[in-house]
Amino acid sequence: MRHADYVAAQSQSKSASSALTASWRRSLVKHGLDPADARRPERLTDAELSLRREPLGAFLQVAGPQLDQLFNLIGASGCMVLLTDSEGLVLDQRAGDADVRQFQEWGLSRGTDWSESTQGTNGIGTCLVEKRQVTIHRDEHFHTRNTALSCMDAPIWGPDGRLMAALDVSSARSDQNDRFNRLIAAQVAQTAKVIETMFFKASFPQARIIVAPDEAPDAAVLLAVDKDDIAIGATRAARRVFGLEREGAFRPLPAADLLGREDDLTGFDKAERAAVARALARAEGNVSAAARALGIGRATMYRRMARLGLNEKDL
């Protein structure tokens, strides 16, 4: 049976219930695509692409070195690295000189649209629709013309918890197998996490970045905390871990409340304890120097330390 006929049959089968056939069904029924369509993806003009890239300039600057590093790891095997926006438009790429023309023939280049709504089931588009890491291997693609490709993708979440991009590695090697795909997919996921982490940090330049104790290996569980120990930002994974709104505006909260640090102090006592502790840390445990920095006497400093539960021996 031809690939296009098989995809069409499975897409309309009531018994087919896998994630892959669900994507095929979306492509065929929801988006009205034809699996036998052999047309390449359309490409934006350079001016149109520049307009799409402009709002993401800071993000692309952070991501660029990570794309280089990923390509240095896998490029020699004939793979290509692609970075798209949240709608599946390719914004940046890395490919070997010997391979770039062939990838362009498949429509894998800057300015092409690889959303699922236009290209059917594919690594980039399906990753963005399902908001998870995916691998679409050869004949798992919706369009017959893409069945020579293997695509490994991971989503990248923005500092506001919204889906921001997809990171893709595509290969057309005839000997590409499941084991090779898994190795590349793991590296793609790790690189996506690094990009997300670095851009989150860059988005809160004046804040301390705290890694949650139960950080997941495949997700960046980070909080941005200001000088007053107020959490002012959280990654998508951190929002999930701490039961916060998944995306959008972040409501500032005391970091101690999120991290579960409890003590007997309340209200202004907590703020005073933090201020005294900071002064002592800056003075490297010298109580007299810390007292002078706070503008109080040494005896007063000792009384405050006792009331706030700060022990000189622990400094």
Rank of each mutant, 00 (worst) to 15 (best):
T84N: 06
M164I: 03
E48H: 12
L83G: 11
S17V: 11
A4P: 03
S50W: 05
H3G: 12
R53T: 09
R101Y: 04
R304Q: 15
I136E: 08
F59C: 06
F250I: 08
A256K: 12
H137M: 14
V7A: 08
E140R: 10
S115C: 01
L259A: 09
L223K: 02
L73A: 15
L149Q: 09
D228F: 07
N286T: 02
Q66E: 15
I195P: 10
A290G: 12
Y6A: 12
Q102Y: 05
P41T: 00
L167H: 07
K270L: 15
F204I: 05
W106I: 01
A36L: 04
D97Y: 01
G125Q: 07
G243I: 09
T45G: 15
L128M: 14
D153T: 12
D139R: 10
Q187I: 11
A38D: 15
A8V: 11
D263R: 04
A4L: 03
H143P: 01
S13E: 04
R240E: 14
R261Y: 12
E42G: 09
G125F: 04
A216C: 00
A291V: 07
S174F: 11
Q10L: 14
Q206F: 10
A212Y: 00
H3W: 13
D92P: 03
S115F: 00
R145K: 12
G107D: 01
A274D: 09
L280D: 06
E48K: 13
D314Y: 02
R273Y: 07
A58G: 11
N286A: 13
H31K: 00
S288I: 07
E262K: 14
A271H: 08
A172D: 13
A22E: 15
D113K: 01
D92Y: 03
E215R: 11
V211P: 00
I195V: 15
P213V: 02
R273W: 07
D175R: 13
N177T: 09
A281D: 14
E48L: 12
A290Q: 12
I124Y: 02
A9Q: 15
W106A: 07
I124S: 04
E116A: 02
C79Y: 10
R173E: 10
R53L: 07
G107M: 00
G285P: 10
A154H: 05
G32E: 03
R138A: 14
D226Y: 04
T197P: 09
S203G: 04
D92R: 04
T45Y: 03
R138L: 09
M301Q: 06
E140S: 12
V90T: 12
L20K: 08
D229L: 03
